[in-house]
Computed example of a mutant assay.
Amino acid sequence: MKTIKQYIAIPLLTLFLVTSFVSCDEVEDPNPGGTAVEKMAGDWYVQTFVGENLALDYQLISTYNTAANTDEMWVDDHQHIWWFKSKTPVNISDMSFAGTDLESSVDGYDITVTITNGKVTQGDTETSGGNMTDGISFDIEFSDDPGTIYTIKGYKRTGFAEDEH
């Protein structure tokens, strides 16, 4: 019986005591903060227009921070519109974005894009399901279709079934 105490009970008790003295004592709630472009980031249901003509109905695109986490963001169409994914400069204070000859490479499809008039608005856009959410709009020109300006505009994905496409 003494052998069981020596080899099992005493080391377990010692381990329990040691871990109780070195366990974490979190005093404050940690706040990891957000990203530089968090108010401009999200998934968006957008329509694509050429002039006043609807060229492509609702498709899902995304905007999100870059690894630099500064004054630029990714605009990514997930191969739904033209196969583009570009980093674009942003003005965080007025929630606008634009850039010229931005590189885009998606699965070996290498082009440049020019984005103008990019704007994210907060809470002022009505979804197709009748809900209010953030809006996005921008003009884009693709290097392999020069001279054609596409206007992309839509709303932030709400997660409500009536707003999904």
Rank of each mutant, 00 (worst) to 15 (best):
M1L: 12
K5C: 08
Q6D: 15
I8Y: 14
I8D: 03
A9P: 00
A9R: 13
I10E: 11
P11A: 10
L13A: 14
T14W: 01
L15W: 02
L15A: 15
L17T: 13
T19A: 09
S20K: 08
S23D: 05
C24F: 11
C24G: 09
C24M: 13
E28S: 12
N31G: 06
G34D: 11
G34T: 15
A36N: 14
V37F: 04
K39G: 07
K39Y: 03
K39F: 05
M40C: 04
M40E: 02
A41W: 01
G42Y: 05
Y45T: 04
V50G: 02
G51P: 02
G51Y: 09
N53C: 00
N53I: 14
L60A: 11
L60Q: 08
S62G: 15
S62V: 05
T63M: 10
Y64D: 05
T66D: 01
A68D: 14
N69Q: 12
N69Y: 03
D71G: 05
D71M: 07
W74Y: 15
V75S: 02
Q79D: 14
Q79A: 12
H80I: 03
W82C: 13
S86N: 14
K87A: 11
N91L: 09
F97T: 08
F97G: 08
G99A: 11
G99W: 06
L102N: 07
L102K: 05
E103M: 13
S104P: 05
S105G: 11
V106H: 00
G108L: 09
D110V: 14
I111A: 03
T112F: 02
V113A: 03
V113P: 06
T114F: 10
T114Y: 05
T114N: 03
T114L: 04
I115S: 02
N117R: 10
T121D: 08
D124T: 15
T125N: 01
T125E: 08
E126I: 13
S128Y: 04
S128N: 13
G129I: 04
G130P: 05
T133Q: 01
F138V: 09
F138T: 03
F138S: 04
E141N: 00
F142T: 01
D144K: 04
D144E: 11
D145G: 00
P146C: 02
I149E: 08
I152K: 06
G154W: 00
F160A: 15
E162Q: 14
D163S: 07
D163R: 07
H165W: 09
H165L: 10
